[in-house]
Design a protein around this nucleic acid. Structure first.
Lengths: 230, 230
DNA sequence: CCCGCCTGTTACACACTCTTACAATTCGTC
DNA sequence: GACGAATTGTAAGAGTGTGTAACAGGCGGG
């Protein structure tokens, strides 16, 4: 959900200057002032089947976006970090669920208002388009990881992606702001395999694990990238 | 790539009626008249790294959109059927490759022209947005299949999806317009497992295979859907 | 018409990952 | 600071899926 980092404020601001000949005066409307919701760990932002009344922008924490099979198996589609938008779509119902992995904050936006404005504001519509394009790229990348890579390659790819996404280039440390089970459900592995693999990487000297298993130091980023088979 | 079935002609036609205050007269331009390209089986539409000069709309046949790892492993992201758009994105280079699985025809459209028009035409931009949303939904669905389902569930899910996508509700037959290796690379399995699983489904009486393994009759669609764990 | 190539199928041994069970750690509470 | 519950980590057997390889069938070229 990398590109979902659009600045909605500026998008709607420019939208106000557009003029259309198709009679859509709704372009003049501003997005209603957004409210912020605080979430505790494991609390849901929305669930599959809920009315899609709102779209959310992550402000703090991490939100896991996932889908569950009838028998309970869960596939996490993406982790959303601050700046990312979740809940975009074209249906009236959410087709995915979203829950915080750690205490988080999300900005709540009216889905109807956002999409009404986009109908006449090409810039906003294009921003939404590009956001979803980035999200698509991330999902494809995960699909390749899950479809083709081995357990160790998956974990390495995850760590590298997490590093690119959350850490500055200078820092070689990533914060695992989620449980082993979340990582397992993202990568299509089990908790135990994730655990084993992290231990193996530590034994190999590629990473170091601290703070009760939540903080990972990437000792050898080049090796890690290589192991990920990127 | 289901929703990529947008009617570009109408989109650009309505685009001609828009008026914008930001000085973008490019909205007046029409999309250059599209040329049609014929492809033989296995011929590439574009490759990863190619300049993204064109976007393509499938007219006939099936196009496999895929990505390869450095060591040659291949993950097919999606099969594109007539009406689907391929090559959309935000970068100047293609990040994926696309090749025909059977003799096909694609309409070639200028990517630059399409995206230039979208900059001032909210309707076209919104259509692109919705197209990518549908593509995203399909990719997510595949991710769940590959990440969580067993071999037999994957094959069943593939057959059900193919049926929904290509066959009318009345017909219980699907045409496998691709090789076993293509299905394997889509589902994250090996050729052998795909072959074994299809045989198993035939033995179970759920499907029947005809025409040299290219045509599959879904004898028990309910059972098939159940086996897919949808 | 025969031959060779490509694709698809089947068999078997192995490797990987999963399941189960148990140990260790962390966190909340007293 | 200590206890107990919940979560996480580790170890060993079980199962699934994979790779190798051999064989069958279809298609096109010689």
């Amino acid at each position: 959900m990398f590109a979902a980092q659009l600045d909605l404020t500026s998008a709607t601001a420019t939208g106000m200057h557009n003029r259309h000949g198709d009679g859509s005066s709704v372009a003049e409307q501003r997005l209603p002032s957004a409210t912020v919701r605080r979430l505790i760990a494991k609390e849901h932002v929305f669930c599959e089947g809920d009315d899609r009344e709102q779209v959310f922008q992550v402000e703090e924490g991490v939100i896991a976006v996932y889908k569950t099979l009838p028998d309970g198996r869960r596939q996490i589609i993406d982790f959303a970090y601050p700046g990312d938008l979740i809940g975009l779509g074209i249906l009236d119902e959410h087709v995915l669920s979203a829950q915080a992995t750690v205490p988080s904050k999300v900005k709540c936006l009216s889905a109807a208002a956002l999409e009404r404005i986009a109908e006449s504001d090409a810039r906003l519509a294009l921003k939404l388009y590009k956001s979803v394009c980035h999200e698509l790229a991330a999902t494809r990348s995960l699909l390749i990881t899950v479809g083709q890579r081995s357990a160790i390659e998956r974990v390495c790819a995850f760590l590298v992606a997490l590093h690119r996404r959350t850490a500055g280039a200078e820092s070689a440390t990533v914060d695992l702001a989620m449980r082993r089970s979340d990582i397992a459900d993202l990568l299509g592995l089990t908790i135990e395999t994730v655990s084993r693999t992290l231990t193996k990487l530590r034994t190999m000297g590629v990473i170091d694990i601290a703070q009760g298993g939540t903080r990972v130091q990437l000792c050898d980023l080049a090796r890690l990238t290589d192991l990920a088979n990127e």
